[in-house]
Write a protein that binds this DNA or RNA. Structure first.
Length: 432
DNA sequence: TCTGGGGTCCTAGGACCC
DNA sequence: TCTGGGGTCCTAGGACCC
């Protein structure tokens, strides 16, 4: 039995819990660079805010409706997420942290000693008390059905009060008949459209579809989804995160970039960041690739996007090697005269610590004390704050930095940003 | 003027091997 | 003139997720 717990409008809620003055007002959170709307609270949804839509296209609507906008404050969201997950891990034997705002809990066995819906309500109440965040809980025999149950909890908040136990088969079929096939977890826009053309419109029709037919026209992924909808578990809770296959660091620039020197700085910065993530995973990489692109939306000049990769003979985790390789990649794809919008550095082909073999034919001799140097670098940056020690190639001014014009304080992770309560006389009541 | 970032898995097709 | 069968590995691209 699985429970899917996820926080309602997570980013927007993180912003409002520290701002009681925003109660009842529409609130949205923007993506990096203040580009798109990535989260909105119920009030904002009611105003007709388009999720995923570009910010600048909706500015007029926001002004009229009094929408309060925030830049993404990942430091705050990550810390709030930790608090939620720690509580969940305390309350349930096995938890898989599926994303920043949701987790699957394996609650097999719980139904032997208590009512599942009650258990869901207890999770909800505990999280509300500890974090002031409201969650939805969906309970069922498979992950896909738990997702569906959670969706129902979101869709009918008053009727369900945020918790749905969907373990009863009759209830499953009733709900699936009422939902469109694109509301299934794992069915996106494309597959939904193809299914519809085949006459499969509701989730129930998908659950009842012939498994060989699905396998023939789609992939094993959709086959698993269908089986899961029928109550046959194909996916388990993965308590320990599997090791990553690749690491990507990419950003859009605050302003279009035309100078090679600026691009080189950006690439150095992304390479250094990717190398840091790599070491955090205790991995060494052999593939380093870089991509650059202009905006796909610009009509007055031709699009340019390109990518290059180098394969090292010996796996590395040293920022100096990764910066050097990334710069070589950049040099092969850089073209003068474009207005670049975005770039990124990707690492792949990982080896775990210890298996890295020295290569007899490698031109570069192994670096002396590379591990110790990198450890020291990471330690200092962890203790004194990100970016305390950095590489000269990253540049100092960084004119290409992303825009974050509406950033809120990092209430929970910086002393200087701590919330300050100011009491006025009236708050204390008038003296008798 | 202004359109996110970071992942996973699967499949098809080409290169190459014997 | 007639040009096989079976396999692996790699990569690019497409789909999905949050």
């Amino acid at each position: 039995m699985f429970a899917l717990v996820d926080v309602n409008s997570f980013y927007a809620s993180c912003e409002t819990i520290f701002r009681p003055d925003l109660k009842g007002r529409p609130v949205i959170v923007l993506s990096n660079n203040d580009g798109c709307v990535v989260a909105c609270n119920t009030e904002a949804k009611e105003c007709g805010v388009k999720m995923g839509g570009p910010y600048f296209k909706q500015k007029e609507l926001f002004r009229r409706a009094g929408v309060v906008a925030f830049s993404s404050n990942y430091e705050l969201y990550a810390d709030m997420s930790d608090r939620v997950m720690r509580t969940l891990e305390e309350m349930s034997p096995y938890c898989e942290i599926y994303s920043i705002d949701e987790a699957f809990c394996d609650i097999s066995g719980v139904q032997n000693c208590r009512n599942l819906e009650e258990f869901g309500r207890e999770i909800r109440a505990t999280l509300l008390q500890r974090t002031h965040l409201t969650v939805g809980v969906g309970i069922a025999q498979t992950k896909t059905l738990a997702k569906l149950a959670n969706l129902a909890a979101k869709k009918w908040p008053h009727k369900t009060r945020g918790v749905v136990d969907l373990s009863d088969i009759e209830n499953q079929r009733k709900l699936m008949a009422a939902l469109h096939v694109n509301e299934t977890w794992g069915v996106g826009r494309r597959i939904a459209k193809r299914l519809e053309e085949m006459g499969i419109k509701t989730v129930l029709q998908l659950a009842d579809a012939d498994i060989r037919f699905i396998r023939k026209h789609f992939s094993v992924v959709l086959e698993r989804t269908v089986r899961e909808l029928r109550g046959e578990p194909c996916l388990g809770v993965e308590e320990f995160a599997p090791t990553k296959q690749e690491i990507l660091c990419s950003r859009s620039f605050g302003e279009r970039l035309t100078e090679y020197e600026h691009m080189r700085q950006a690439i150095c910065t992304y390479a250094a960041r990717a190398a840091e993530k790599l070491r955090k995973e205790h991995q060494y990489c052999r593939h380093i690739s870089v991509f650059v692109k202009t905006s796909p939306f610009t009509v007055y000049e031709p699009y340019y996007g390109n990518q290059a990769m180098v394969k090292l003979l010996t796996p590395t985790q040293d920022t100096r090697d990764i910066i050097a390789a990334a710069t070589r990649c950049l040099n092969t794809i850089w073209r003068n005269g474009h207005h670049y919008q975005k770039a990124g550095v990707m690492l792949g082909d990982f080896f775990s610590q210890g298996v890295a073999q020295l290569n007899l034919f490698d031109e570069n001799p192994p670096r002396i004390n590379s591990e110790a140097l990198m450890q020291t670098l990471d330690k200092i940056n962890k203790k004194k704050g990100k970016g305390t020690l950095y590489f000269a190639g990253q540049g100092i001014q960084q004119p290409w930095q992303m825009k974050r014009a509406m950033l809120s304080p990092r209430y929970t992770t910086r002393w200087s940003d701590l919330l300050v309560m100011k009491a006025s006389n009236s708050d204390w009541g008038s003296p008798a």
